[in-house]
Design a protein around this nucleic acid. Structure first.
Lengths: 190, 190
DNA sequence: ACCGAAAGTGAGTGATCGACCAGTCATAGG
DNA sequence: CCTATGACTGGTCGATCACTCACTTTCGGT
């Protein structure tokens, strides 16, 4: 495959690890930590199930990697939002961040779904809870720091983000009904 | 059946079904639909695993019953809130509803946790999605109708409700840090 | 051409899952 | 007391789970 002689930075195993990470993201997005099997992940990554365990110590570590990758991607998109509205009012910065986030999950809604599943798994899986706590903590402080918004503004920002989870869970934007329109109002899905 | 001389409304099987429903609520609250086994439910209900399948056709039906029971309990608490602020301004009614909901999940946070897991399971389990859609739809219309609030007010109400999920998932009220205080601010946990 | 290391897999391990069935036990009506 | 009915369980089924290991293939360096 692409026997490119020039700039190959990653070892082949490292490339595989990234492939598995990406496809595992899709798998975990659908059925979560408990509902996803390592066999499914392997299959969708095009490798044997045994090799998953060469790339990651166990299922939990794989899931944690996926969740962390997910947080990183979201942070990047928030940074994009900040870049668009640098130095504006807190309201403008928060709006730009929300918009960037909306664009991100519009083109890759698995990120949002993994967030949901991670929060669910955090309930009774200490290792997951720790990662989610750190991820959320960092995100809150980033949003606060970059927007210079007040407590209520920052809180509203995350409340609105969580509302996206509900909208996605019930497919509110596929439903043509008043209740669905109320929930999804103003949530841009590009 | 019901040959009981005194006031026994439910047949014994019906009683058992309710017992299983209550304990299953606790089990599903912890590990969700995929992560909870019928064996665990049976054990915590004090019956054999086989008998779970006499009371419910399968695991899915049991989970759906739990979720529906959950929605019903929440609706009751919203009604309590309405009763406290009948005829007031939309803001007052919404606040009373939120307060009643907060009291409910303070004394039985499993209801909140099941809601989270139900939304996650709704992603790839059509039957669950249907139940959650109906439950949420009914809730939105109830809140709108009773509060007479505008679209934005109703939407904010549910956004705030979803924020509770995040607060619970990361145990924000057990963490003494600015980010946690920002998220949990104003969320009454009695 | 050869070799050592890394990439990758087939074939399993024991454990546990949801679901089922044959049967035991308690009880109420006659 | 007898018997029919409903509550309830032990034992087990095939499938599937996370995880392991012995093994083969690929490939870069010399």
């Amino acid at each position: 495959m692409a026997g490119a002689p020039s700039e190959r930075r990653l070892s082949t195993a490292e490339e595989r690890r990234e492939t598995v990470l990406r496809t595992a993201l899709g798998a975990f997005a659908a059925r979560g930590y408990y509902g996803t099997t390592t066999g499914e992940v392997a299959k969708s990554a095009g490798i044997s199930q045994a090799y998953v365990y060469r790339l990651f110590p166990d299922k939990e570590a794989l899931f944690l990697s996926v969740v962390e990758h997910c947080f990183a991607r979201i942070r990047e998109s928030l940074a994009d939002g900040v870049a668009e509205a640098r130095g504006s009012t807190p309201e403008a910065v928060l709006h730009a961040m929300g918009d960037a986030y909306a664009r991100l999950i519009a083109e890759e809604n698995t990120l949002l779904l993994v967030q949901m599943h991670a929060q669910c798994a955090a309930i009774s899986e200490p290792a997951v809870r720790e990662v989610v706590q750190r991820g959320v903590a960092r995100m809150v402080e980033y949003v606060r720091g970059m927007s210079d918004g007040g407590e209520d503004q920052v809180q509203d920002f995350f409340a609105r983000g969580m509302l996206c989870h509900l909208v996605m869970a019930v497919s509110a934007d596929d439903v043509d009904a008043p209740w669905a329109r109320t929930l999804a109002k103003g949530i841009r899905h590009y």
